[in-house]
Simulated scan of single mutants.
Amino acid sequence: MITEAEFEQVAQDYNIEVAAIKAVHQVEANNGGFLPDGRLKILFEGHVFWRQLVKKGVDPYSILKQEHRDVLYKHWTRDEYIGGTGEWDRLAEAYKMTDDDRVKTAAVESASYGAFQLMGFNAQLVGFKDAFDLFFFLAEKELNHLKVFIKFCEANNLTRHLRSKNWAAFARGYNGPGYAQNKYDIKLEAAYNKFRL
């Protein structure tokens, strides 16, 4: 777990309230980046897998079989989420669909990882060679999750919204335009108000 001193140091370095960082930490992965068995918390996104395959020149229809419809689909849906260790099974299924390295890379890019649920395809944006390098860095310790989260916020000009507690603007930048559907901004504000007391 991230220690209080580590939260405070990062907050001080970036002029952000500790409560604001803790709010995102709680809402994204319920205060923890690892499963009880020691593996990273992940969520596999089948629509992202579709998109990443297309970017790599792989036609998703060319590898889509009925048994893979739980991990490869064109549009976002939460219907296929399993949660917990089941998400690792979904990632493994996607990874093993073919021997094509492009497919394997796209699979690793299509999950979100750790305490702040950063998508694998953001690896280069936050200073890593690829999603595999990002994964191994996050697997070391939870402090690394916090470091990567701040890098992502800096790269996307989101730290200003954390400073001003503009939860809607932060939510839009961090989770996309559909954030309101899941009341992401409302959850963040509620968590912030809890931690600032």
Results as ranks from 00 to 15, higher is better:
residue 3 T to I: 02
residue 3 T to Y: 01
residue 6 E to A: 15
residue 6 E to F: 07
residue 7 F to A: 12
residue 9 Q to K: 14
residue 13 D to P: 04
residue 15 N to F: 13
residue 18 V to N: 08
residue 19 A to S: 11
residue 19 A to D: 06
residue 20 A to T: 01
residue 20 A to H: 02
residue 21 I to A: 06
residue 21 I to N: 06
residue 23 A to M: 03
residue 24 V to F: 07
residue 28 E to S: 11
residue 29 A to T: 11
residue 31 N to L: 12
residue 32 G to K: 11
residue 35 L to H: 04
residue 36 P to K: 01
residue 40 L to K: 12
residue 43 L to N: 01
residue 45 E to D: 08
residue 46 G to E: 13
residue 50 W to Y: 07
residue 52 Q to D: 15
residue 54 V to T: 00
residue 56 K to N: 12
residue 56 K to E: 13
residue 56 K to Y: 10
residue 60 P to L: 07
residue 61 Y to R: 11
residue 63 I to K: 05
residue 67 E to Y: 02
residue 67 E to Q: 09
residue 72 L to V: 07
residue 75 H to R: 15
residue 78 R to Y: 12
residue 86 G to Y: 00
residue 87 E to S: 02
residue 88 W to R: 09
residue 89 D to R: 13
residue 89 D to A: 14
residue 90 R to L: 15
residue 91 L to N: 02
residue 102 R to W: 07
residue 103 V to N: 00
residue 105 T to H: 03
residue 105 T to Y: 02
residue 106 A to H: 00
residue 106 A to I: 00
residue 111 A to V: 01
residue 111 A to N: 04
residue 111 A to F: 01
residue 112 S to W: 08
residue 114 G to N: 09
residue 114 G to M: 10
residue 116 F to Q: 04
residue 116 F to P: 03
residue 119 M to W: 05
residue 119 M to R: 04
residue 120 G to I: 08
residue 120 G to V: 05
residue 121 F to V: 03
residue 124 Q to R: 07
residue 128 F to W: 02
residue 128 F to L: 03
residue 129 K to F: 07
residue 134 L to T: 00
residue 135 F to H: 15
residue 135 F to C: 14
residue 136 F to E: 05
residue 141 K to W: 03
residue 144 N to R: 00
residue 145 H to F: 08
residue 146 L to K: 08
residue 147 K to W: 05
residue 147 K to A: 11
residue 150 I to K: 01
residue 157 N to G: 07
residue 158 L to F: 02
residue 158 L to Q: 06
residue 160 R to C: 11
residue 164 S to V: 04
residue 168 A to E: 15
residue 171 A to K: 06
residue 172 R to T: 09
residue 174 Y to I: 13
residue 175 N to P: 06
residue 176 G to W: 06
residue 178 G to Y: 12
residue 181 Q to H: 10
residue 181 Q to M: 10
residue 181 Q to Y: 05
residue 182 N to R: 14
residue 183 K to N: 11
residue 185 D to Y: 01
residue 185 D to R: 01
residue 188 L to P: 08
residue 189 E to D: 09
residue 189 E to V: 03
residue 193 N to Y: 13
residue 193 N to V: 14
